[in-house]
């Protein structure tokens, strides 16, 4: 579905991604873990070109992504992203947030978009919040609106960038439940998270990153029970 080949990225002198190869199949749920500064967020942002990569290529459905702006806009229509800080548009209601891109990018008729938007909000458990502005919603509710907003473009792949890290602990489970439901429905997902419970129960594959490289990867059963690398063992011990 989405494939990254030999990705390198520098921030000035800092070599943050050092030859990453990642191949994610359709309907696969991949969790990226690793210590902070290991490059997992940068890798995720590179996959939809929010970060410009310096070396390497990204393939979507075996088609290499051209770096031209128009091609990138098309790519981003197919790759949804959810951010740590939600980034909802504060001047729009929840429903307006959800239908903004379908109406203005895909030119979907407004009535049709509204119906779809209300369905999506219902699917994340927020049908009664359609007319609320983000400032009236809790963090967990905002994040669920953000997921609905990304889904509104009917993407083929969803990227989640530490989406529960900015939430109060008791609001985390609502968001994780929505993600779990999405995984079950067959969505291809790449998830950067520190929620090891989610990695263990929902993911098909766990990828451990350190210092801009993929250290090891495997099924969650294998990964959490008998990790190969010393660094992985230490990391898991620290966070579990």
């Amino acid at each position: 579905m989405i494939r990254a080949v030999n990705i390198h990225k520098w921030f000035g002198d800092l070599h943050v991604l050092r030859g990453i190869n990642l191949d994610v199949a359709k309907s696969e749920v991949v969790v990226l873990i690793g210590p902070s500064g290991s490059g997992k967020t940068t890798l995720l942002r590179s996959l939809n070109f929010l970060e410009q990569i310096d070396v390497g290529s990204i393939y979507l459905d075996d088609q290499e992504i051209d770096h031209k702006q128009a091609a990138l806009n098309k790519l981003r229509e197919r790759v949804g992203m959810v951010f740590q800080q939600f980034n909802l548009f504060p001047h729009m209601t929840a429903l307006e947030n959800v239908i903004e891109a379908p109406v203005h990018v895909k030119h979907m008729p407004r009535a049709e978009a509204r119906t779809m938007g209300l369905d999506l909000l219902a699917s994340v458990g927020l049908s009664d919040k359609a007319d609320c502005h983000p400032s009236e919603l809790s963090g967990g509710q905002q994040q669920r609106v953000a997921i609905a907003r990304a889904l509104a473009m009917s993407p083929d792949v969803m990227l989640f960038d530490e989406v529960t890290s900015a939430l109060d602990p008791e609001l985390v489970s609502d968001v994780l439940k929505v993600m779990q439901q999405l995984a079950r429905s067959g969505m291809t997902m790449i998830v950067v998270t520190h929620e090891m419970g989610f990695a263990r129960e929902v993911s098909d594959r766990v990828v451990m990153m350190d210092e801009g490289q993929i250290l090891e990867e495997g099924s969650p059963e294998h990964f959490f029970v008998c990790p190969e690398h010393e660094r992985t063992k230490r990391f898991l011990k620290e966070i579990l």
Partner: peptide, 18 residues
């Protein structure tokens, strides 16, 4: 305006000016 706002717009496939 927080850079995340622009990034969110771009991540939804919106071109720069939109």
């Amino acid at each position: 305006i927080d850079k995340g706002q622009y990034e969110a717009a771009r991540s939804l496939g919106m071109p720069h000016w939109l």
